[in-house]
Design a protein around this nucleic acid. Structure first.
Lengths: 257, 257
DNA sequence: ACAAAAGTGTTTTGGGTACACCCATGT
DNA sequence: ACATGGGTGTACCCAAAACACTTTTGT
């Protein structure tokens, strides 16, 4: 439990740790959140005392895999710890296994020393998608920060590399799977959906062509509800119907614009 | 070394094993070979004595990750052991982490018992691509068999699942990356290339449309060489120029037919 | 009345698809 | 001469891309 929260190092013995966890295998998670036309990623603040100084660093949330868990269980546990949310979309994308990955930097390694039993840890990278409106801010743990995904600073260990791979994989997957809807609220406008694609792919699309394309998607259900409280013509709300998606999806469907 | 060849279980002590290998992390590899219009996968024959019987089973080649290795090093080591080849294309595609994955079947588990120090092993799935002409058959280790990829029998553990995922990922990657050329010989005819796609995607393409499409690929170099010894008009040979590919590739190139 | 985003059609262009015949070689 | 795969061009259709004005609401 000390290890689980990552915040109270060394509170359980090495033996107890090895009984519960796989010492050489962890999961690190790039948690993407979307809100207000910004794509963000959750990073954790770490204060590392070394040589009389306290160093401020950032890392992706992660944890060791328990002996009884699949890696998906581990990822779900991390998500619950960091955001309070359950049933969040998580996806593994790559394994990072450089034998020196925890030892490239002296300050980083000082974070490792008191916490980790074995200094050879292979980690499975996951990304995760959620809409930030769903987050109950009182649940957010301390020392968490939602960095703009386009302005990610230096992270510990190989976490910049893990984040970049996660972002690349996310972009690719968004073209082929209905993942946008994990980032959007349950009811959304077509402009919100377009803006989300534009944010993630860092481009702009023609509104009419975009709407023609998504109007062909039968699983996008127009509701009899509209935006309220906006000082312009209120937009119609839509929702995603997964059942229709599963039934009507063709072999080669793609979300490319 | 005993463990490395997978064939002499238990010849080194538990301590020696743990000093050299990560006991809970392995790599399993679906090695695809192409030859003579057949796509094949390398599987290993295992004889497992249990209750007075000897059971015949098949598995994908695999091995534990050494403490000094990245997972790519492990995959390359497996490739060298199984085929004698170096510098072969390998790619990780997914992690398999069911805590019970080695214990689902009594006979399978009997294979594990004498060999493996920890019965919780998480494995990283790799696939690998090679042209079977490159294999020196005297190098092929005993108990290896190239099964037709469309007729894979029951494999041990979760290896059928690993193989199916590998095949799915291979198909997907072939549409976006120049992987065909890993499976083809260095010099090949356009029909060989077409047949390879047809084999892997289990369909047929129109010859003229296919050629129009690949004629746009500037990195496919027509040679001044032709097939010999065929009783029909000899086909021109082509080769793949990776430098031109890297220079001219566009963001969204795709090999889809 | 004005600001701000919603919503809506047409034309042009390029790529995908369907389709049939002559050519060069070995036997 | 015949069998075998090699190699080539055209017409049609649909999807992608470019492009501008009217509508509805809040202030």
């Amino acid at each position: 439990m000390a290890i689980e929260s990552e915040s109270n190092p060394n509170r359980i013995s090495q033996e107890a740790f090895e009984r519960e966890f796989l010492p050489t295998l962890s999961v690190d998670c790039a948690i993407f959140g979307y809100d207000d036309n910004n794509l963000r990623v959750l990073v954790r603040r770490e204060y590392i005392p070394l040589d009389g100084d306290v160093h401020l660093e950032w890392k992706l949330p992660g944890n060791h895999v328990k002996r009884t868990e699949t890696i998906y269980d581990t990822a779900a546990r991390i998500l619950k710890e960091q955001t309070g949310l359950e049933n969040i979309y998580v996806k593994q994308f790559s394994v990072f296994s450089d034998p020196e990955r925890l030892k490239r930097n002296l300050v980083d390694y000082e974070w490792v020393r008191p916490r980790i039993v074995d200094d050879r840890v292979v980690t499975v990278g996951f990304y995760s998608l959620l809409n930030m409106n769903d987050i109950d801010n009182s649940m957010l743990i301390e020392d968490a920060n939602w960095m703009n995904a386009y302005e990610v600073e230096r992270l510990m260990f190989d976490h910049n590399e893990i984040f970049e791979e996660a972002f690349k994989k996310l972009r690719n997957d968004l073209l082929h799977d209905p993942l946008v809807f994990e980032l959007l609220p349950e009811k959304f406008t077509l402009t919100q959906m377009q803006k989300l694609y534009e944010t993630i792919f860092n481009t702009n699309y023609d509104k009419r062509n975009y709407r023609r394309k998504i109007n062909k998607m039968e699983y996008l259900i127009p509701l009899d509800e509209f935006q309220t409280g906006v000082s312009h013509k209120p937009a119609r709300l839509y929702s995603f119907n997964r059942d229709i998606y599963e039934e009507t999806r063709t072999e080669r469907f793609d979300f490319r614009m």
